[in-house]
């Protein structure tokens, strides 16, 4: 419990900034809805001048921008991207922070097992992400209700928002695994950005090429907002795939961290 609380204390301010960032981005974008939804045909006109592959890659063809859920679904691609960067950053740094600040000799020499260290740190990251999701989702509902002129499907709207949490779980697990695989991570953000944007680009290719296989290798495709809007549910195959990957990454993290030599300073 003491490690968990200590980790929370050290990470809470960063979680607050990222959550405010997400809320700000969502609010500013949604405020454009009343103006844009009136002129959807004009916007569509502009898009028609772009190469079709490009428009597809950006996901512009799949959303009905005149409808608030479609409009939100388009934005959500980028909410996912930012939320994923935060999750991955937290996942990578929570264990590797001890190596960077050279405090492993302090923590690991305490009467606590390696498993309990991983659990405490993992739980602290999850706690912050869950709180972030609750606050963000409440914010999104509030803003959507303020802006929507007609009623919209609340459960679809909720499903879209829950997908943020599920994708974040993937990146937390991946981040943890990377942090125990690499001997020393000097700076977290470059690796985080590289990997998250890598997955994001695969998703863009996936949308542009219509190659179904690509979808399996990027979590951004697992909970495609356009699909959720269409089917009003998650794709069960991808949902299970996501959970299995998270489980494997987490088990591997525990296993490797237990076997690992703490590097001396």
């Amino acid at each position: 419990m003491n490690v968990y609380l200590q980790e929370l204390k050290m990470a809470v301010s960063s979680a607050i900034y990222w959550t405010i960032g997400l809320l700000l981005m969502m609010t500013l974008y949604m405020m454009m809805f009343p103006a844009l939804s009136k002129d959807v045909s004009a916007i569509q006109e502009i898009f028609n001048n772009f190469p079709p592959e490009f428009v597809k890659a950006l996901g512009l063809t799949t959303f009905d921008l005149s409808n608030i859920i479609g409009f939100y679904g388009y934005l959500f691609t980028y909410i996912l991207l930012i939320g994923s960067v935060y999750a991955m950053k937290s996942g990578i740094s929570v264990l590797s922070e001890e190596v960077r600040s050279k405090t492993s000799d302090f923590l690991v020499a305490k009467p606590i097992s390696r498993n309990r260290i991983v659990t405490a740190k993992l739980m602290s990251v999850l706690t912050l992400i869950i709180i972030q999701n609750i606050i963000y989702t409440i914010g999104a509902f509030t803003v959507a209700h303020m802006i929507a002129t007609t009623s919209f499907n609340q459960s679809i709207f909720l499903l879209i928002n829950v997908s943020l949490f599920l994708v974040q779980l993937f990146f937390v697990a991946l981040g943890l695994l990377i942090s125990v695989l690499m001997k020393k991570i000097k700076t977290v953000l470059p690796i985080t950005l590289g990997i998250v944007f890598g997955f994001f680009i695969i998703q863009m290719l996936n949308q542009s090429l219509d190659d179904a296989k690509l979808a399996y290798i990027t979590p951004f495709a697992y909970f495609d907002a356009a699909d959720i809007i269409e089917s009003a549910s998650f794709d069960i195959t991808f949902f299970i795939l996501n959970m299995i990957i998270i489980l494997i990454f987490t088990v591997l993290t525990y296993f490797i961290y237990n076997k690992r030599d703490m590097s001396s300073v």
């Binding site: 050290m10 600040s101 050279k102 405090t103 000799d105 302090f106 020499a109 305490k110 009467p111 606590i112 097992s113 309990r116 300073v265």
Partner: peptide, 21 residues
């Protein structure tokens, strides 16, 4: 039985580093 043993050990590493903040 590492964790159990370490309850009764006091350790001073050769290089001391703690959480800066």
């Amino acid at each position: 039985e590492g964790p159990e043993i370490r309850e009764h050990i006091g350790y001073l590493p050769s290089e001391v580093f703690y959480y800066d903040n």
